[in-house]
Amino acid sequence: MTDITSSLPPVARAGRFLAGEARWSWLEIGFWVVAFGLAFFFRSNHLLFAEIAILALFAVSLDIILGYAGIVSLGHAAFFGLGAYTVGIMARSGWGDPLTGLAAAGVTAGILGFFTSFLVLRGSDLTRLMITLGVASLLHETANKLDWLTGGADGLQGMMVGPVLGRFSFDLYGTTAYVYALSVLFVVVLGLRILVHSPFGHALRAIRDNPLRARAIGIPVNRRLIAAYTLAAVIAGIAGALLAQTSGFASLDVLEFHRSADVMLVLVIGGSGRLYGGILGAIVFRFAQDAISTITPQYWQFWIGMGLVILVLAGRDRLETVGRKIVGRALPWIANKEAAR
């Protein structure tokens, strides 16, 4: 393989290298085929699958700022919750169309993201943790106090969510919810796949690795971070909106601290700065939560914590190598395809 490429002129080689970085892998294609295929199987699990897709979308949005731009946040639930309440309030006031609701949720969360982004531009990781945490707490308390609008501690009652595209009503099994959430996740990932290989995406990685140098080669660091933070907020808002629409309910829970913490755990589990890390993490996290809480309802958090400690101590790279070996044994064809790339 190297023989063929090394005879090319450097410009062509560089172009080929960059194209190769952005190419679809077989694993990726396989993942989406299986994910959409699941709409026809395991009907009783579709609600869980929908939840996973939503958590994955939320995690992917955090990955943009944490994994790519290097901004740590313990308050990402602020945008998630704002999105959820936006569609919730719209649906209660009679605007139940899901897609326009999503758009509105993205806009409101994006506006909040834009204005709060200025607070996270400066300061160390610790400052950023505190500021994001603070913004989320403020929003939580605001939603709690504005009970005429949000229902306060009781949650938002009486959401009437219409059918998706005017045709697909939300069913009891959650099949519509799953396909709807998965489709939104797919579209977002399609967009982000382009973004992470664009000059903008590369600039974010550069800023994460070395903001000092990024600035010194002419990258307007603050502008890029504001854009990234706003975009992440938009996507988190959409994720929150999906949850409210598919569950027909929004309560203070969407703004709770544990949401922000969970989504960070999801990224830690799945790996940050790789786009699919959030999806993988969401699957593992949610299934583990489900499986462990069936076995030991009271102590599932203990086991999740234990798993995290092992993950961190053993190192993800090592576990990945083991995982790849197992996959290689089980599915030699895919492994060969991957190796050939």
């Binding site: 952005a22 382009i194 973004l195 290989h197 664009s198 000059p199 903008f200 995406g201 600039a203 890029r224």
Partner: peptide, 11 residues
């Protein structure tokens, strides 16, 4: 002047 382009691949 293409540093902000997010809709196309580098180069």
């Amino acid at each position: 002047g293409r540093g902000g382009d997010w809709w196309r691949r580098v180069g």
